[in-house]
Amino acid sequence: MDRRQLSHLAHRDHPVAAPLDDASVGRLLTLALPRGDERVLDLGCGEAAWLLRALADRPEVRGTGVDVSPVALAGAREAAAAAGLTERLTLHETDAARFTAPHAFDLVAVVGATHAFGGLLPALAAARAHLAPGGRVLVGEGFWECAPSPAALAGLGASAGEFDDLATTVDRVTADGWTPVHAHVSTPGEWDDYEWSWTGSLSRWALDNPHHPDSADAWEAAAAHREGWLRGYRGTLGFVTLLLRAS
């Protein structure tokens, strides 16, 4: 199965493709958008869940989303149309690292998409290039809750050097010229909900479409992901969403 289609199916019931619940998303957006009339850019927006939530609660906010996945952007357009938000949402199918815009943004989000830039600090550099004076950046990044075991690394397909612990992650951000003005560390419950949703959505699709040529691939992907999580990185990989201002 195409990786982008697989991700689309896995996130059907959890469109914020990161381990945050609805209340956490709402709290972060309240702090990130204090005026209620900001321009918002989401780099690696996926199905634009952050943007749609921001626009739905704030009729003067305008959003721009950038992603390479046509499947995800089609889902974003469909959701925007259903919510009556199409006129205030602009979507671009392009590499987020190469995106340019004719104006700056009051909030730039890169949540769970720093890999598209080659890591946390390159993602922050890209965000800074789009940021209006006094603006904010919302960045979501993984970190090690504890030293990763071989099983955890295998479950993630990661190396031990791919993430730091939380304190070191924040140190890297502050050394790069940013000040955290708020943050949310995903709880174990948010992680569990996200992972059960990911594997469950994909498994349900496979069960409901047994004759689809991708059904077996979806089933196997869900089973492998569940195994890698439950017997590997559960309790080891954390996720922090930082709200930053330039120092």
Rank of each mutant, 00 (worst) to 15 (best):
T94G: 03
T64Y: 15
R172G: 02
G119F: 11
T199I: 04
E162H: 12
G63N: 10
S215P: 01
A175G: 05
A74C: 05
V40D: 05
A48C: 08
V185L: 07
R39G: 14
H92A: 10
T64N: 04
S7Y: 08
G155L: 03
A10E: 05
V173W: 02
R35Q: 15
D2M: 06
G118D: 00
G118T: 12
S203Y: 03
L20R: 03
D22F: 00
G238P: 10
P133F: 12
P70Y: 09
L242K: 03
A183G: 04
P180F: 11
A246I: 13
A127I: 10
W198H: 08
P34S: 06
P210K: 03
D164R: 15
F117Y: 14
T64L: 09
V71C: 00
E195P: 07
L230K: 02
A80K: 07
R231E: 14
D42C: 04
P122M: 11
R88E: 12
A129L: 05
D42V: 03
S149E: 12
A82G: 05
D13A: 15
G161K: 06
R35E: 14
H14A: 14
D176L: 12
W50A: 08
R231H: 13
A160V: 09
G177L: 07
D22T: 15
T168F: 09
P19L: 04
G75W: 07
A125F: 00
L131R: 12
G36T: 08
G63Q: 05
G140W: 11
V111I: 13
V137K: 05
V181P: 00
W50Q: 03
A56V: 04
V61S: 10
P59W: 05
R128G: 10
G118Q: 07
A104Y: 08
P122I: 10
P102N: 07
P122F: 08
P213T: 00
A18Y: 01
A246C: 14
S24V: 02
F239A: 11
D176K: 09
L153G: 01
T86I: 05
A223P: 08
A216I: 09
T64I: 03
G112F: 09
S69L: 00
L107A: 12
M1D: 07
Y233D: 02
H103A: 13
L207A: 15
G140C: 11
D106H: 15
W191R: 06
S247C: 10
A49G: 09
